[in-house]
Nucleic acid binder design. Structure first.
Lengths: 207, 207
DNA sequence: CTGACAATGTTAATAAATTAACAATACCTC
DNA sequence: GAGGTATTGTTAATTTATTAACATTGTCAG
C-alpha cells in the first residue's frame, strides 16, 4: 500500500493514542476526539483513515480495537522484524528503553559497541555485542533495521557496514548525513537542528 | 524575517556543514557541493540562501566564513538564550552531550530531576536542580527553552509548569503530545514514530 | 414515523514545499 | 577579446500536504 510518509507517521501515533483509549476503557472514539488528543484536525484523521480504507460504525465513532488492528495490518510487517542499536551510550540506552515492555512486531535483539566495559553485558534489556562481531551477529539474527547512535566520527563507516551486513532500514541519530543505496530506507533525525529551530521561532515570536 | 520551518532546519544544517568545511580549510563552496554533503539538491540550497538574501562570489561559490556569519545573523538571537533540560535520564544526558564544547548562542544552564541521587550534582556538564526549585531557578536564570525528557506520565504537568515559569519554547521528546499556549513554540519528536516509519518502508520495499 | 442532528467519507480548493527551467554573469581559454 | 562554460538567482511548474466544503447516512427525540 502506497502511503504518504506523513500519514504513516500519524498512523503510528493514532495507534498509540488508541492503545491509551483501551486503557481507559474507551471503546469508541470520534475523529474529532482522536484529533484533539494529537492536536491535529479531525479532517486529517478522517483523510488518513480513508487512505487505509477504514470505515467507522456510523454515529458511534471508530471502534478502537478494530482500528488498532486495521492500522496494524497496514504498518506492521507480517512476521516480526529484528532491530539493532549500534552504539549503546546514553542515546542508545534511551532508545532501547522505548522497546521495553512493548509487544510489537519490532524486536530489539542486539546492540553493538566497542567499549570493552559494555561488551557481552545486557544493557537496557538487550545484549551488547562487540563491534567486531557485527557481521556474524547481524546475519545470524537477521537484523533488518539499525538504529545508529554512535559518535559522529564513526557514523559513515558504521552505516556502510550495516548495509553490507544486510540491513534494509536505518534510523540515523548522529549529526552526520549518511549515504545509503536506494534499496535501504534511511530516516535521519538531528537534535541540534530541532533545538536551533525552537530557538529561532522563540526569537521571532519575541520580536 | 519570516522563513518556512523547513528552511530554518536546513539553515542549521548548512551552518554545521560549513563549519566542517572550515575545519578542512575549504573556504569556498559551490551550491551543488554543499547540497551533496547534505543529500539534497543544489536548487534547494540556492533557494534557501535566496530567502535569506545571501549572494555568492560569482563563479567561486559561497564564501564559507561569510555564509556562516550570515546564517548566524538570521537564526541566532542577538544575545544568548538559556536552555534547560527537564529530566536528566539517558535521553536527557544524551541531549546535554550535544551542547558540550559548542560555543553558540544557546547555553545549557540547568537540568532538573526529582531523583535525590542526581540533585545538586553536575551531570553531563550541567548542574541538576531539584524539580521543586524549577520556578525559582527558571526565573533566576531566565530560561527560555525547555527540553523535556521526562517519563511520559509527567510530561503534561512539567510542560505546564515550564510555561508558567516563563519558558517560550519547548522541545518535547516524550511520546505524549503537549498543549501549549499560542505564544510558546512547540516542537515535538517521537522516536517510536520514526522507528515504525522505518519499519513500514522496509516492509514496503521488500514486497 | 419523520425531521433534525451529528458525524462520516470524499471531492475540491488551498497552501506549502520541492523541483525544473532558464536568463544572467563572471571566468577561463584560446 | 570572443566564445564557451560553469554557476548562480529567480520565476514558473509541479508535487505533496493540509484544509474546506458538502452530500450522505444512521440515530435519536418527539
Amino acid at each position: 500500500m502506497k502511503l504518504p510518509g506523513k500519514t504513516v507517521e500519524r498512523l503510528s501515533e493514532y495507534r498509540r493514542t488508541l492503545l491509551g483509549c483501551l486503557g481507559e476503557k474507551k471503546n469508541f472514539i470520534f475523529s474529532h476526539d482522536l484529533a484533539a488528543r494529537l492536536h491535529i484536525t479531525a479532517v486529517q484523521v478522517r483523510r488518513d483513515l480513508m487512505l487505509i480504507g477504514y470505515s467507522s460504525v456510523q454515529r458511534k465513532g471508530y471502534d478502537v480495537k478494530e482500528l488498532i488492528e486495521k492500522i496494524g495490518t497496514i504498518i506492521d510487517s507480517d512476521e516480526s522484524m529484528n532491530v539493532a542499536i549500534i552504539g549503546i551510550g546514553n542515546l542508545g540506552r534511551a532508545v532501547a528503553g522505548y522497546f521495553k515492555g512493548k509487544r510489537s512486531k519490532l524486536n530489539l535483539v542486539a546492540s553493538f559497541d566497542s567499549d570493552p566495559q559494555k561488551i557481552n553485558k545486557v544493557i537496557s534489556g538487550v545484549k551488547c555485542y562487540p563491534h567486531n562481531d557485527m557481521e556474524k551477529v547481524m546475519k545470524e539474527l537477521d537484523i533488518r533495521i539499525a538504529i545508529i547512535t554512535v559518535p559522529p566520527d564513526y557514523a559513515k563507516e558504521i552505516a556502510e557496514e550495516a548495509v553490507r551486513f544486510g540491513v534494509k532500514g536505518i534510523l540515523n541519530f548522529t549529526t552526520i548525513p549518511l549515504n545509503v543505496p536506494s534499496w535501504v530506507f534511511l530516516e535521519e533525525y538531528d537534535m541540534i537542528t530541532s533545538i536551533e529551530k525552537v530557538a529561532f521561532f522563540v526569537k521571532e515570536n519575541m520580536i
